[in-house]
Design a protein around this nucleic acid. Structure first.
Lengths: 164, 164
DNA sequence: ATCCCTGCAAAATATTTGCACTGAT
DNA sequence: ATCAGTGCAAATATTTTGCAGGGAT
């Protein structure tokens, strides 16, 4: 795996720009690379590597899952994409441009997209107290959603992990 | 996997109390169960299932990894223990009693244990805005530690995931 | 011509499940 | 005597790696 591109880069919204960036970093503008990127843009986030491979498969059955993994990692190195863990399932991939915070309910698995501003206070507190620079993209924020909180005491459920 | 015991239960600090709880819930006070719990107490948190199995192995070579997994899950259901993901490696297990927040540096992998009070503000904000009840035990809070933040721009490193 | 990238196969990691037997109640 | 728990083997899920051939520069 890789760690997010740093410093936090602007996501080139345009596919050609990304391919340009890839070339600038010594990479090659392969077909697979472009197709995978297109799939990610088209999906608009919240896609697993496997889902992306499936999306791609109709048009390009020769593109293997491995290649999807390798390219997503590359995009992450370039700061163009990142992955998030919402639960125990596979990682979810996003373009860096669509930044949002995930709240995941541990009981029903609901994924709520929160305004990243919600974290502003925490970010400041942490930085002041310890110099730690928060980046909550990598893991979701878990907790209990409103409806589960109310009916919580009665019937525990088994693992929702990640919803469909 | 399972979801934390709910409502958040007091962790019985005492092993006999936990075994009592297990029996009360229809479970049996097996030797393996007790030994695994003892290992968890002795380790004082931050142990993976595999590490716990290793800890146990000298005294009880017959206790299999599978049994460790199964019992940890059971303890989690009972609200006695919980697991946390600090990175891409295996989950870390803790007793519910030793509650603390993990900050993990994405670059060097350092794990900082933060005062859970740091999150008080965020907790309130979230609850007020969306009724979401925060529980940040399940995933670590990722970011960049102070020293990595300073030397950050120069040399990206590969995946630290979880430190030794 | 170089060497990055790909497809395919296989491995690696972390965890879960099936099943017959043992052991706690 | 019952039925939960265990050991062991095998399966599962997700991701990574090795290698030889193909394609971008």
């Amino acid at each position: 795996m890789s760690v997010p591109g740093r410093p936090a880069q602007q996501a080139p919204a345009d596919i050609d720009e990304v391919m340009e960036l890839v070339r600038h970093e010594g990479g090659r503008a392969s077909t697979a690379r472009r197709v995978i990127l297109e799939a990610l843009v088209a999906a608009g986030g919240h896609r697993t590597a496997e889902e992306l491979a499936a999306d791609i498969h109709s048009g390009h059955p020769e593109i293997h899952q491995t290649t999807v993994y390798r390219n997503l990692e590359r995009f992450e190195d370039l700061g163009v994409a990142y992955h998030t863990h919402l639960g125990h399932g596979p990682a979810q991939w996003h373009l860096t441009g669509s930044r949002h915070q995930h709240l995941v309910c541990q009981y029903c698995g609901a994924v709520i997209e929160a305004d990243p501003d919600i974290l502003a206070g925490l970010e400041t507190t942490l930085h002041d107290r310890s110099g730690f620079e928060l980046d909550l993209r990598h893991f979701a924020i878990t907790g209990t959603c409103q409806s589960c909180a109310s009916e919580a005491r009665e019937h525990p459920i088994s693992d929702p992990s990640v919803p469909a």
